[in-house]
């Protein structure tokens, strides 16, 4: 549970079990696991901003906990060099009912992608490396969660 930034892999089943056993009222655990897409690349390196990253993820989690009736939420993001197929990120939430859990998990990912200070660099099969460009679709996905009283940033 909680928010973690780490080089090590994580155990999805153990994380989901921990959320599911938080409280006898938990009726739904929804999770998203992001993987390194392998086509054409030999490695993905993730850089982050130590200090700000953890604060940003805590803020995103707190916003989700405030907007949906959740019993708990987990955000784990890996950094360092990862191989194709490796897990990069896990978001998971526990709630009484599935509706809130599905929505909150999607919200966490959309906000994480646009607000948490991580940067991906891909190494291609020919050895060249390039920074991944931000995608406009990620910004529009995050914007749809904006509420009238939410501050623009």
């Amino acid at each position: 549970m909680g928010v973690r930034v780490q080089e090590a892999d994580f155990d999805v089943a153990a994380e989901l079990d921990a959320l599911g056993s938080l409280d006898p009222d938990v009726g739904a655990v929804v999770s998203f696991t992001g993987l390194v897409r392998g086509s054409g690349i030999t490695a993905m390196t993730l850089e982050h901003y130590p200090g700000m990253t953890e604060k940003a993820l805590e803020a995103i989690k707190a916003e989700a906990m405030g907007r949906w009736p959740l019993q708990g939420a987990t955000i784990i993001h890996r950094v360092g060099t990862l191989a194709p197929g490796a897990r990069i990120v896990l978001v998971a939430v526990a709630s009484r009912h599935r509706g809130a859990a599905f929505e909150a998990a999607e919200f966490l990912m959309d906000y994480l992608k646009t607000r948490a200070p991580f940067w991906k660099k891909e190494t291609a099969e020919d050895g060249t490396a390039r920074w991944v460009d931000a995608r406009e679709t990620d910004t529009s996905a995050a914007d749809r969660w904006r509420t009238g009283d939410a501050k623009a940033s």
Binding site: L46, Y49, M52, P117, F118, W119, K120, W131, A134, D138
Partner: peptide, 24 residues
């Protein structure tokens, strides 16, 4: 904390400059 180009620097300890984020 996320900020804009017009953010004042008075009293600021740390400014970070970076491309748009691409985590997840």
């Amino acid at each position: 904390e996320q900020a804009d180009f017009d953010a004042p620097l008075a009293g600021v300890r740390e400014v970070a400059l970076f491309p748009p984020v691409t985590g997840g």
